[in-house]
């Protein structure tokens, strides 16, 4: 038996918004420790890794490990039926071929349940090594979304260069070129608005704008985003999900051949 209850169903709505443009379907792996998802986009350029810890749920029970193959368009339809303030419970029997979503209004006067068929998905799991990154940049997530949106007007690629002084995002194309520099914030009253840089070594890497823009769909999940970079390895874009977990996107760099 699997049962997970979340008072704020809006968190789950936001998680779905953050993955549904990048992935068509995905396997939600449920275990005693929580719900995990790992999936590559169809072009195998990026990888999404989602972790929702069991202790972040209001109630959580998972007697046996369960892999739920889910069509994300179908799940989006169901999550649209939930009010933002609704309490959500996901429920499945062991070896089930369906999962049930239950939504309760805050005053408990409206209860609805939706059963969704599960899919059998062939899933490839990739081993992601623990890495010490040369540069770790934390910045407001809305600022990052704005930068990705603005630069994608200029070209298909963004160069992210990080030094101790700051981080520079650049793009160039037919209409011209663009550079956005962010310095580390000196004095911050509000932590959410800070830009901080931890640098061991300078790094400059090129990435596809299109994918960065997909990642920024996670912006409503967190006021801050963390970018981790090392030479010639994938960029990590991480958004914390409240007290419950995180979503990480890995993006393969573009390399001069």
């Amino acid at each position: 038996m699997f049962e997970a209850r979340l008072v704020q169903s809006s968190i789950f709505k936001k998680v779905l918004e953050a993955i549904k443009e990048l992935l068509n379907e995905a396997t939600f792996d449920c275990s005693d420790s929580g719900i995990q998802l790992q999936a590559m986009d169809s072009s195998h350029v990026s990888l999404v890794s989602l972790n929702l810890r069991s202790d972040g749920f209001d109630q959580y029970r998972c007697d046996r490990n369960l892999s739920m193959g889910i069509n994300l368009a179908s799940m989006t339809k169901i999550m649209k039926c939930a009010g933002n303030d609704d309490i959500m419970t996901m429920k499945a029997q062991d070896n089930a071929d369906s999962v049930t979503f239950m939504f309760e209004s805050p005053n408990q006067e409206k209860m609805s349940d939706y059963e969704m068929k599960l899919m059998n998905l062939d899933q490839e799991h990739l081993g992601i090594p623990e890495t010490d990154y040369s540069c770790v940049i934390k910045l407001p997530s809305a600022e990052f979304a704005r930068i990705c949106r603005d630069l994608s007007q200029f070209g298909e690629s963004v160069v992210i260069s990080c030094t101790k002084e700051g981080v520079k995002f650049s793009a160039a194309g037919d209409i011209g070129s663009a550079n956005i520099k962010l310095a580390q914030t000196a004095n911050v009253d509000k932590e959410d608005e800070a830009v901080s840089i931890e640098m061991q070594e300078k790094v400059s890497l090129t990435f596809a704008c299109r994918y960065l823009n997909y990642f920024t769909k996670a912006t409503p999940l967190s006021p801050q985003v963390c970018l981790s970079m090392s030479a010639e390895v994938p960029l990590v874009v991480e958004y914390k999900i409240g007290e419950i977990g995180h979503i990480r996107y890995y993006l393969a760099p573009k390399i001069e051949e």
Partner: peptide, 14 residues
């Protein structure tokens, strides 16, 4: 020219 690499190249399939 820069070419897009694939994510499989960096992480091993388990």
């Amino acid at each position: 020219r820069t070419n897009q690499t694939s994510i499989d190249r960096f992480f091993q399939t388990l």
